[in-house]
Amino acid sequence: MTHHPRRRRYALLAGALITLLLMGLDLADPDSTVPSTLRSAGAAVTGPLLTAVADTFPEPPDHGADLAATGARLALTESEVRRLTGIVDLNTSATLAAATDSAPHAAHRVVTARVVGLGTPTATGPQRLTIDIGARDGISEDQTVLNHEGLVGRTVLVGATTADVLVLGAQDLIVGARTDSGLLGTVGAPTPADGARDPGQLTFSAIAIAHLEPGDVLTTVGSPDNSPFVAGIPVGTVVSVDPGTGRVGPAAAVRPAADIARLDVVGVVVPAPAEPVSAEADR
């Protein structure tokens, strides 16, 4: 063996070791600096190329009306959920806003986007997708992403012109949800302990003993400051209830409201621009 090939093989080995190190870092902490920087750099370089390729595909059907309806429902359901749960929305309380010298937010607005990329599927399916809007369009991390059917996920990495979305069903995404009857729990990717699930199905784990039955609709509970999730967005429908296996509350298989593999147009829920305080808002 000559010296030259040996040097190449050492370089190859070094490249593999560095790759393994980065993979370990990303597995240990997905928000660690080096993997995040690499992802951002990749998005900055190849994002425009991806958007250009996506633009060559036929125009999607117009979902604008559906998204407008979703936005209206968003405002209604959120106020209803807050009334039922007694949660005070700091963003819409004019009294608190006046006390903190900041104008209240009317609620939210939905910025529409097109899905331009769907990530390499893992063992359970795609974990991330890319949309064609980014920081220039007012998008930031930890914002709710939905389509006209329901919850899609939350933004996790925002570039100038594109943003990555962690989709419902990803291993790292757990969503607080409630049934029509008010039963609270979490929705996430199934584990082998949940028993057999059809591809794409999720698991709802209730946190209290209550009756759960197929057909129950789950909606988001909402997060503090509406980040990452606003309240009242459909998450999915219960298709079957798991037999009791020693859990505190019942668990069920859930069919997601939004079909992640068939997404085209989505909306990102961003805070609406600040508006002046009205007397009506404070009642």
């Binding site: 790759t19 393994l20 980065l22 990303d26 997905p30 992802r39 991330r128 990495l157 570039g159």
Partner: peptide
């Protein structure tokens, strides 16, 4: 984008 999961 949206990149590998995990990266590497």
């Amino acid at each position: 984008p949206p990149g590998g999961d995990p990266l590497g």
